[in-house]
Amino acid sequence: DDLEQFAKQFKQRRIKLGFTQADVGLALGTLYGNVFSQTTICRFEALQLSFKNMCKLKPLLNKWLEEAD
């Protein structure tokens, strides 16, 4: 599944880049005006958010990865 794959890759890249889940949540706030909690990022990576929320977060996290690289 696409979302599952993305969540896995996101977590690996985030760790490799040296960011915590909280860092990502704050960075999203800075970039897009939407601060996300560490818990939200954690749940995303664990696929524990609703499908709708996963779909909403994915493009933001994808963009963040591009910026962070």
Rank of each mutant, 00 (worst) to 15 (best):
P59F: 09
L3D: 04
Q9F: 14
G25N: 03
T40Q: 12
T30C: 08
G33R: 08
Q38D: 12
E66Q: 14
T40R: 05
L47H: 14
T39S: 12
D2R: 11
K56F: 12
R13Q: 08
R13V: 09
E67L: 15
F19W: 07
D69G: 15
Y32H: 12
T30V: 13
R43A: 02
L60S: 05
L65K: 10
F19K: 07
K56M: 11
N53C: 09
M54C: 04
F36D: 06
L49T: 01
A22P: 01
L26W: 09
G18H: 03
P59W: 00
G33F: 02
A7M: 03
G33H: 03
S50R: 08
Q12N: 06
S37H: 12
E45G: 00
F10I: 01
F10N: 03
Q48H: 05
F10S: 01
G33D: 06
T39Y: 02
D23R: 10
K56L: 12
A7H: 04
Q9C: 07
P59Q: 08
F36E: 11
M54P: 00
G29R: 14
G25H: 03
T39E: 15
V24S: 00
F51G: 11
Q9R: 10
L49D: 02
V24P: 04
T30W: 07
R43V: 04
F51H: 14
A46H: 13
Y32L: 14
K11L: 00
K11S: 06
Q9M: 15
F10M: 04
N34K: 14
Q9K: 13
N53H: 12
R13L: 02
N62K: 11
G18M: 02
A7K: 01
E66K: 11
E66V: 10
P59T: 07
L47A: 08
L28S: 00
D23I: 03
M54R: 01
G25C: 15
L47Q: 06
G29S: 15
L47E: 04
L65R: 04
Q12G: 04
D23T: 01
G18T: 01
G33W: 03
S50H: 05
L49H: 04
K63R: 13
W64D: 10
T39G: 10
Q21K: 09
K11V: 01
T39A: 13
D2G: 10
L49F: 01
K58C: 15
F51K: 15
F10R: 06
P59A: 05
D2K: 14
F36G: 05
F44Y: 00
A27R: 14
D23G: 10
K58S: 02
T30P: 11
R13S: 05
R13E: 09
L61G: 01
T30H: 10
A46G: 13
R13I: 02
A22N: 02
T20S: 12
Q38N: 07
S37Y: 03
N53E: 14
V35P: 12
K63S: 08
G29K: 13
Q12T: 09
V24H: 01
T39K: 13
D2C: 05
L47D: 04
T40F: 07
Q48W: 07
Y32D: 08
S37D: 11
T40V: 11
G33P: 10
F36T: 14
K8Q: 12
Q21H: 12
M54F: 00
D23Y: 02
F51P: 14
K56D: 11
V35S: 11
L57P: 14
T40P: 03
D69V: 08
F36W: 03
L57H: 08
T30D: 12
A27G: 09
Q38G: 13
E45W: 02
K63T: 08
L61S: 00
L61T: 06
L31E: 12
C42L: 10
I15S: 11
G33Y: 06
R13H: 09
F10C: 08
L31A: 09
K56Y: 03
A68C: 06
K63D: 08
L31R: 14
R43W: 01
Q21M: 06
A46V: 04
G18N: 13
S37C: 04
F44S: 00
L57G: 02
R14C: 04
K58M: 05
S37R: 06
R43M: 05
T40N: 03
A68K: 06
R43G: 02
A46L: 06
A22R: 11
G18R: 06
Q12R: 11
D23P: 00
P59N: 06
L60A: 06
C42V: 08
Q38H: 06
K63V: 03
K11Q: 12
S37Q: 08
Q9Y: 14
V24L: 04
N53Q: 13
S50A: 03
L28A: 04
F19Y: 08
Y32W: 09
A7W: 01
A7I: 13
